[in-house]
Design a protein around this nucleic acid. Structure first.
Lengths: 163, 163
DNA sequence: GGAGTGATACTCGGATATCTGGTGTCCGAGTTTTCGCGG
DNA sequence: CCGCGAAAACTCGGACACCAGATATCCGAGTATCACTCC
């Protein structure tokens, strides 16, 4: 079980887009450069975030990405769902209905306790991620980050911002 | 993000092994046949469970598998860990340390808030799985299962039990 | 008849192929801005 | 100076290789059983 790298990329990009001034955008190329990752592949994930209504993309020169709504209204879960898909990690194959001791399918209307257990755990995971917003992350970063790093980032942003 | 099918197989097998009389064993072939799955591949997962100290394997004719300790002392989490590995699903690549705005590594001693958030969610997931034991699952199955299915299983077990 | 010994059958265990899905890249289509030209 | 048109830059979307890990299989190692032989 492994989470896609795109999740980490998407959350970091959302956090960076949360600190740019309202009305400005940042191109995918800049986002990739800032994080030192592949531009083409990052754009693939940004597309998913755009399709999910988390980001808004502006075409043309001076175009780029920005958050579709305030950072406080974007949960980490929303980003994970957009990139990983909403399918649950555990998919019950109903092997209890197979093999020599199986009966007719009607007997198995009640969900398998094993499936229920796994789904309950996944609910706890999702609940935890839903409790955290991008604004929370930015707050944590601002509090912990080295002041020089913040200034360096702002200076770098100055040359890349559009809009 | 997807959990291996082996997790489902492993938990089902543990539940079945929990209901056989003490001192008896069940061969991997029988476990695979009962669930209608590939024997060779199932054995691979049973090996992992054996290596993790959850199952005990007996070689030779009249050999097979049995639980290494009471079902009430085997958590679902232990089975998942044994089959999926203990690596966390989210692996922080520390992309904050890359790119043009990065500083020297010493600045990043404090963990990334994004990583912390993902790990916290995973803790909730693990906690939920740790709260459930194989004995709990068997109890749930016994309460819900059709009586005919139980009898059919017991009759089938009668011919496969060893020891 | 009983005990010892070798062959046998059955099991687990690890090494080896295959295949799906994530990873990464590239190119064309569409759109908006920008620049240049002419009136 | 203003309006029009062409070029450029950027994003979007899909199509195409590549690679890791999961999936699936086979063959070898070990052990208890069984049969046969010898005492």
């Amino acid at each position: 079980m492994k989470l896609s790298d795109g999740v980490e990329w998407g959350v970091h990009c959302a956090a960076l887009l949360a600190v740019i001034p309202a009305g400005t955008v940042l191109p995918g190329k800049a986002l990739a450069e800032y994080h030192g990752i592949s531009e083409s592949y990052l754009v693939k994930h940004l597309q998913a975030l755009t399709a999910a209504g988390i980001l808004i993309s502006i075409p043309g020169p001076k175009g780029g990405y920005r958050l579709a709504r305030p950072a406080a209204e974007i949960t980490v879960l929303a980003i994970v769902d957009a990139i990983e898909g909403r399918d649950s990690a555990f998919r019950c194959a109903e092997i209890r209905q197979r093999g020599p001791a199986a009966l007719e399918p009607a007997v198995y209307r009640l969900p398998c306790p094993i499936n229920a257990t796994m789904l309950r755990a996944e609910m706890a995971w999702r609940k935890s991620l839903r409790a955290q917003t991008v604004a929370d992350l930015v707050g944590g970063l601002a509090k912990r980050a080295d002041q020089r790093a913040v200034e360096k980032t702002l200076a770098w942003l100055q040359e890349r911002l559009r809009g």
